[in-house]
Design a protein around this nucleic acid. Structure first.
Lengths: 344, 344
DNA sequence: GCCATTAATGCAAGCGGTTGCACAGCTGTC
DNA sequence: GACAGCTGTGCAACCGCTTGCATTAATGGC
């Protein structure tokens, strides 16, 4: 049915090994022969079977990409960038969604291991130990997690969280809440650590709420907790939770940002479009996707590339944060509230 | 390095064919032998190499999924559902993003053909002829396109467009605009055909604007065209364009829905969260992803499954549509505008 | 108790390629 | 003109696995 190397060999009157070399070691074949073979290959529509090739060479030209939830708007830009970068290097991408389930992550890595050159683990939920173990079975690049000896791309959320908390305390907020992310999230721990340290320095109180599902619903359901805690400003694990929280706060009669300020993390497309527009910490997701693919492909060359790439984050101030009850720092503009802010 | 069938055979003291049969034809091997082999396989961490198996059986247990733009929020829920459904049947999914480029679609299908059992072509931009040709090289299931002889999953956008236009004319709008989608989109043509027919029946005028990029920016840039045309209601090819259009209209000083009503299509998550909340035609994207995978997997059994599955759409009335200048149908509630509608 | 079945396993070819090695023909050197 | 050294190609083994066929042992019918 499909055209194989044998068909091309027969048509060109050469041995299959010559056809093989025409594609994988062109300098070893006579230019005349080569062009004849290429012509016949073209005519027959021949394409080397990558799986067959991989059987011998060990290179599949495939990459596995494992994410917690494709439908979470944080991931698609990363997937898109990774796919595009991979294809630039003639690689294809397997995408798997683990539904925030650590056990499933392990299973999928193992299932994919044999048919990929490496796996990108984005925001994994499983333990470091397990990741280290898996990295002995298949080349791994981890995004949003730091593990000694494992190549990683991390976004500097700690700095992002610090900037966000400083923004809030500068606005005069003295009682902050932090909505934690899912259990097992390195990012969530980083944020908590950094936010706690920054709040302490600023002399502000910080109530931790969570872990929570990193979804709109996860934010929606803790609105009452935030109000009950008496916080006037909230930093959420991600934008989705921040948006859900705002919905929940409004439903409870609280105004954002007049009564409660909310900051998200990620700067997903949504954040510009909700009302009030969300103040958030922008994370370079596309760059992370590209960098992770690059690391994985470089990995093949020198075995022990265990570098960690750090990507900067940036606070984007929009309309969901405003003055708190305390004195605000004059350095910070007081009227960050948008004129088109939601009606009170 | 990796453990192969030979390692398991050696450990179990049987021939490799017995190990092979233990996994792919268990009824042919003695229960005692089988359990012994399984025990050793488990212990060694053996997993059959799917690529090697595929070489002989022709079944890869992989599926290709080709979309125009992963970052377009319409696609992720579909991808997620397809991936989940595929994994339920022990298949993995290659995801490729073609950036709305028809030529790239063809290239990717061909590149993937040898290592998948079939390809899901979601909202393809290439020609029917080319799709027919490709379907002779690899099993294809098309989503959002109808081609005789090719299995397809289509969402009934024609009906959705009709319902949307009827909604608008019932509100008293007499001059409508339609924002077309990208060139090559079957959905876009369906919408146009249906909207035109419905508008004619209702005696309303319909201005067609497009083709356009199916993005927020694509909607934003045609806001002026809409105003210039004098339309008081707009049906957009998708929610993203509708949202961009609303931004553009507001920037130009027009109020939504007071001056112009806007209806989108898709009901992406965003649509509930923007202000005003978007009236839109909900399309069953997750169901489409599942159905497409099911069709592809069934395809293997009886060769000529060329059924077309039709999925229903539904108009979701929110806050972006309101009364037009003409008489409105009493059957239609007049006060669809939300109380929290954007300030005038 | 003999023969035809049947059950369980081994053997080996082959899926579509790659690659180390052998070999033939040509070139250039002395 | 003999020989070393290329260059270009063919040969055959092999990657990890499946599968038709052969082989052997055990079973059952009469």
């Amino acid at each position: 049915m499909a055209v194989t190397i044998r068909d091309v060999a027969r048509a060109s009157g050469v041995h299959i090994s010559t056809v093989s070399r025409t594609f994988s070691a062109p300098h070893l074949v006579n230019p005349n022969t080569r062009s004849r073979v290429l012509a016949h290959a073209e005519e027959l529509g021949y394409r080397p079977n990558r799986a067959a090739r991989a059987l011998i060479t060990g290179r599949t030209y495939n990459i596995g990409l494992i994410v917690a939830d494709i439908a979470n708007p944080f991931f698609p830009p990363l997937i898109k960038a990774a796919e595009s970068q991979a294809r630039k290097h003639d690689h294809h991408i397997f995408v798997a969604d683990t539904n925030e389930d650590a056990a499933l992550e392990e299973e999928v890595v193992r299932a994919l291991a044999k048919q990929v050159d490496g796996v990108l683990l984005v925001s994994p939920r499983m333990s470091n130990t397990l990741i280290e173990q898996l990295s002995r079975e298949v080349p791994l690049v981890v995004v949003n997690r730091q593990i000694a000896g494992i190549p990683a791309v991390v976004m500097d959320v700690a700095r992002g969280a610090r900037t966000a908390v400083e923004h809030l305390t500068a606005l005069g907020h003295r009682h902050l809440a932090l909505l934690g992310g899912p259990r097992g999230s390195w990012t969530s721990r980083e944020i908590r650590r950094s936010a706690a340290a920054t709040a302490r320095t600023a002399g502000a109180e910080l109530t931790i709420i969570g872990p929570n599902a990193p979804t709109e619903f996860g934010g929606l359901t803790v609105a009452q907790d935030v109000l009950r805690a008496g916080a006037t400003a909230v930093l959420a694990y991600n934008d989705l939770m921040a948006i859900g929280l705002i919905e929940g706060l409004m439903a409870a009669g609280a105004r954002v940002p007049a009564d409660v300020s909310v900051v998200g993390i990620d700067d997903i497309m949504l954040s510009r479009l909700t009302r009030p527009k969300l103040t958030t910490v922008a994370t370079p997701t596309a760059a992370a996707g590209r960098a992770a693919v690059d690391m994985l492909l470089a990995h093949g060359d020198d075995r022990r590339t265990t570098a960690h790439i750090h990507l900067q984050t940036e606070l984007v101030i929009r309309d969901s944060t405003g003055r708190g009850p305390g004195p605000h720092s004059p350095a910070d503009p007081g009227d960050v509230n948008a004129p088109e802010g939601v009606a009170s």
